[in-house]
Simulated scan of single mutants.
Amino acid sequence: MQRVLGYDALSTGLVFLPFCLGSVVGMITATRTLVRAGQRAIIVVGGLTGALGIACGSDCLAAAGSVLVMI
């Protein structure tokens, strides 16, 4: 991001902050629902959510060229 979009180190770190917080929320939620839903359901939902996030991120960056649009 620093080379391609011209962000400095602080801006790049702040851009990744929502994704890190989303990972923490996802881990806490998965831990709490593991007993009820089972391992397979947690793995499938987590994989699909991750794939959707990557697809959305790459599509938004390619179309708009701005990370703020993606967030």
Rank of each mutant, 00 (worst) to 15 (best):
L17D: 06
L17Y: 02
I54L: 15
S11H: 12
T31E: 04
L48P: 01
A41S: 01
A37M: 10
D59Y: 13
L52Q: 01
V24G: 01
L68R: 11
R3L: 13
G50S: 11
L5Y: 14
R36L: 10
L14W: 14
L52S: 04
T12S: 15
G22W: 03
P18H: 15
M27Y: 10
L17M: 12
V35R: 12
G46W: 00
G50P: 00
A64E: 14
G57W: 04
V25T: 06
V25K: 07
A37G: 00
S23D: 06
C56D: 14
G53D: 03
Y7W: 13
V69K: 09
F16V: 11
V67D: 04
C60R: 12
G6M: 05
V44T: 05
S66W: 11
V44G: 01
R40D: 01
A55V: 13
A41V: 04
M27F: 09
G46C: 02
T29H: 04
G13S: 06
A51V: 02
C20Q: 11
R3W: 05
L48Q: 03
L5D: 09
G53C: 05
T31A: 15
L5K: 04
I71C: 02
L34R: 07
T31D: 06
F16S: 08
L5V: 11
A41L: 04
R40V: 00
C20I: 14
T12C: 07
L10Q: 15
L61E: 05
V35I: 03
G6R: 11
V35W: 01
L10T: 15
G57N: 03
M1R: 02
G47D: 02
I43M: 07
R36A: 15
V24Y: 06
F19N: 13
V67P: 00
F19W: 10
M27T: 06
G57A: 09
L14Y: 05
V45T: 11
T49P: 01
I54F: 09
G57Y: 05
P18A: 12
G46T: 05
A9G: 01
R32C: 02
A64M: 05
L68G: 05
L34Q: 04
Q39K: 06
A63Q: 15
G65T: 07
D59V: 15
L14K: 08
A41Q: 13
M1W: 00
A62M: 13
L5S: 10
S66H: 14
P18K: 14
A9T: 11
R36Y: 00
F16C: 09
V44Y: 08
I71S: 04
S58C: 08
L10M: 07
G50Y: 03
L61R: 10
